[in-house]
Design a protein around this nucleic acid. Structure first.
Lengths: 152, 152
DNA sequence: ATTGAAATTACCGTTGA
DNA sequence: TCAACGGTAATTTCAAT
């Protein structure tokens, strides 16, 4: 994990469709050298994929919310299964504390949210927070150069 | 927004580096036709970008947490500025309710988290939840075919 | 369908442990 | 001396018109 790899990660975080030759210019290497480095980053799992960023509003899913779920002690397993099966769940964080889970859900209408919450409420105490905006959305912290202690 | 566009979005959500010809095979169209569709999706903002997914653990940032911030009434502006300036904040959700913000932060050590929280505490009541795992992480809900009411 | 780029492979040179 | 890394060139695939 040298400086060049950080630069590549940062560039691909901004635009995953950059060509190897464009990346090569950025880091002053040849295209095959860059391809080689990226292949290694993928193999070691540092890059786990490439995804299009989708604007849910523009696509007819205008409502997103965070749902904090305090799962009932006896319902843990059922809750996990339910969450994995729910189409509307886009992120699920398993967290410390009694709450246990925070979900990010995306729905096309409030009535959809309602039926979703009904299902969660059977297995947990829920607290719903509507998302009004998301002023920060990144893959990596910005301060990575401070962490430039080399890694494996 | 017909069925083919949904298929393209779904494919690019899984792998943003697919070539037009690969996408074309998936949807049984020609490569130029697919390129045209994707250009339109980008122009209308349905696809807002492409980003590499980075495994923070593998890259020396093993600790992530959610921080719920109830911002003090008089400190709203200062809080927003602070959050935008903090390297460690990877997501910031502006939510309904008195809390106002939930941050997702990524740090390389607990002491980094400590100094970060110190700064937030000046401007808000915070509640920190360590993330232990993230069993779901998607761009879109899965149920989109149900929403196949055509859009603009 | 054609032209120009880009990806991929193979091969060679340099460096440093 | 060998392993890691990068460069160049040639082939194939892709993008764009």
């Amino acid at each position: 994990m040298d400086k060049i790899n950080w630069k590549l990660l940062r560039a691909l975080e901004k635009n995953a469709r950059l060509s190897y030759s464009e990346l090569a210019k950025l880091v002053h290497l040849s295209a095959p050298a860059v391809a080689e480095r990226i292949k290694k980053l993928e193999e070691q799992g540092a890059i786990s994929g490439y995804r299009a960023t989708i604007n849910l509003e523009k696509v007819g899913i205008p409502i997103t919310a965070l749902v904090e779920c305090e799962v009932y002690r006896t319902k843990e397993r059922a809750f996990k299964e339910l969450v994995l099966s729910l189409d509307e769940v886009v992120d699920c964080y398993n967290i410390t504390g009694p709450s246990a889970f925070i979900l990010r859900v995306a729905v096309s209408s409030m009535s959809c949210l309602d039926v979703l919450l009904e299902r969660l409420i059977d297995l947990s105490d829920t607290k719903t927070m509507m998302i009004m905006s998301q002023p920060v959305d990144r893959e990596m912290p910005l301060n990575i150069e401070k962490v430039t202690s080399s890694l494996p």
